[in-house]
């Protein structure tokens, strides 16, 4: 150990402060979901679970939830296909424009969401609408898929880098065709990376709002419903319940994905956890 006892104490303290900072607002909002009163005064004095059933029976919440789930599933499906294809090309080939491609995959999450949203809206309005694609679920899926690709891509790419490239050649030598090679050689290696990437993509899509506002038209997803409602003081108890629900729905897939793939990268797992370098 290079660090002195005092340094370690300070680090422990600093780490504790940061962790507290990360979790305390989530706990506070979770508690508010059980607040009986309509006013949002702290500390909470009366507790109740009645808002859960109010939220559950709220028609617009249900509708928004349905849209969010459908959009998440659609975006995840597209992201899985595009992300896998792109990562296979990048991992196994050297080609002109490869650098540009790695840039283009990252761009949708690196550029401010409002830029992506505005750009997609302009294209949908000018190009897709004349072709008959109206603002709605389909355009939400298009927007979400664009920035979900990178998550799958990063997960699969990290996995491909750890697997030997000549396995597919060996498979072909042993008489397998392209499909068999994918099905019996590639897929088993990629399975958990795909699942992890898919879960993260769903979590990312489920609570996205910045791009969604621009691509949704009149349709409400759960975050859009929240954003429209949280300026109405009388409906805040329902917003609190929905908020707690959204936290759970987005946290569980991330937990599962982490278990599956073990990636620690912000963009979903490029950085693999190396072995501990203690002597």
């Amino acid at each position: 150990m290079v660090e002195s006892r005092l340094t370690r104490l300070f680090l422990r303290l600093g780490a504790g402060v940061t962790l507290f900072f990360i979790y305390f607002p989530l706990f506070v909002i979770a508690l508010y979901a059980f607040n009986e009163k309509v006013t949002q005064r702290w500390p909470i004095e009366d507790w109740s679970t009645k808002w859960f059933s109010v939220a559950f029976h709220n028609e617009s919440v249900r509708e928004a939830l349905e849209h969010s789930v459908l959009a998440g599933l659609g975006a995840t499906a597209i992201a899985l296909v595009l992300g896998t294809l792109a990562s296979m090309a990048i991992a196994r080939h050297r080609f002109f424009g490869r650098e540009v491609m790695t840039f283009a995959v990252i761009l949708p999450i690196a550029l401010p969401g409002i830029v992506t949203g505005l750009a997609l809206q302009a294209t949908i309005k000018d190009v897709l609408s004349p072709l008959g694609v109206k603002f709605g679920l389909a355009t939400i899926v298009i927007g979400h898929a664009t920035f979900c690709v990178v998550v799958v891509y990063n997960n699969v790419l990290a996995r491909l880098r750890r697997t030997a490239g000549n396995l597919d050649e060996a498979s072909a030598d042993l008489g397998a065709d392209s499909w068999q090679t994918f099905r019996y050689v590639m897929f088993p290696q990629l399975r958990t990376a795909l699942l992890a990437g898919g879960l993260l993509a769903f979590a990312l899509s489920f609570d996205e709002i910045i791009v969604t506002i621009f691509t949704a038209g009149a349709i409400q997803t759960l975050p859009i419903w929240m954003y429209a409602t949280l300026f109405r003081p009388t409906e805040l108890p329902i917003v609190n319940v929905v908020a707690l629900f959204v936290i759970l729905v987005s946290v569980i897939p991330v937990y599962l994905a982490q278990r599956l793939a073990g990636g620690t990268g912000v963009a979903g797992g490029t950085t693999q956890r190396p072995a501990r370098r203690e002597p």
């Binding site: 909002i29 709002i209 954003y227 936290i247 987005s250 946290v251």
Partner: peptide
């Protein structure tokens, strides 16, 4: 455990987090 603890709030609930702070920071908030 810590990696998971940091990852979980990373992906989820941007709006919920901003809203939570709006509640916490208000005049009658925590």
């Amino acid at each position: 455990l810590l990696v998971v603890a940091v990852l979980m709030p990373l992906w989820g609930s941007y709006l919920v987090k901003a809203y939570a702070w709006r509640t916490i920071l208000s005049g009658e908030g925590a």
